[in-house]
């Protein structure tokens, strides 16, 4: 240990630093704001100066007019990659290459449980079942008979979306997820497949 005492070392009896302030900020600090020196005039001047500085900011904003967003009538747009409430998808018949009219309307999810395996919060529950010719739900051999996400547990990490081999689940943009009952936050397959009632506005490129 060198002879210069380090900032947090207990002051040594009779050392030079102790006499100055009782606490030394260390060598790499350039400037230390110290409280005003004792004395009434000094204090009054300082109070006046700081109040004036604050009022300057206030006046400048008044000139700009109000900037309150009237939530919930008005919503803050989110970025396109914002991770909100999940969505499950169905095949669409887009008519383009790779779109198969035979599959249109079928659920993309095959109930493989890979999302549940990836989920760090353990909030997805999948119970799979077998498709039959009479009851074909998904495009694969199996489908998710039960698909539930407990959104009160979800941490919106998006791992489920990454794990899904069929792009069946994606993170949507809805963030309005408060409720009066915890159990209403367990979203079922039907809820996740349905279109959200109101769309969350998206921020444009570069906005």
């Amino acid at each position: 240990m060198s002879d210069t005492p380090r900032p947090h070392d207990p002051p040594t009896e009779g050392s030079a630093t102790l006499k100055v302030t009782g606490w030394s900020p260390g060598e790499d600090v350039i400037e230390v704001q110290r409280s005003p020196a004792p004395g009434a005039a000094h204090g009054a001047w300082r109070t006046f100066r700081e109040t004036a500085r604050g009022l300057r900011t206030t006046m400048a904003r008044i000139a700009e007019g109000p900037s309150t967003i009237q939530y919930p009538e008005e919503k803050v747009p989110v970025y396109p990659r914002f991770r909100g409430r999940h969505k499950l998808h169905r095949f669409e018949d887009t008519g383009g290459t790779g779109s198969d009219p035979a599959r249109a309307g079928l659920e993309k999810c095959v109930g493989c449980s890979l999302c549940a395996a990836a989920c760090p919060a353990d909030c997805i529950r999948v119970v799979a079942a077998e498709n039959t010719p009479e009851n074909r739900v998904s495009a694969g051999e199996r489908y998710a008979a039960v698909y539930e996400i407990n959104l009160s547990r979800c941490i919106f990490c998006g791992y489920c979306e990454i794990a899904c081999p069929f792009d069946a689940i994606t993170m949507g943009h809805d963030y309005e997820l408060s409720d009066y009952d915890r159990s209403d936050l367990i979203f079922t397959k039907e809820m996740l497949l349905a279109e959200p009632l109101e769309r969350t506005p998206l921020r444009n490129e570069g906005e």
């Binding site: 109930g111 493989c112 449980s113 549940a116 395996a117 999948v126 799979a128 077998e130 199996r142």
Partner: peptide, 9 residues
Amino acid sequence: YRFRARPWD
């Protein structure tokens, strides 16, 4: 047992 569960379930 078909499709009833995954090893992590």
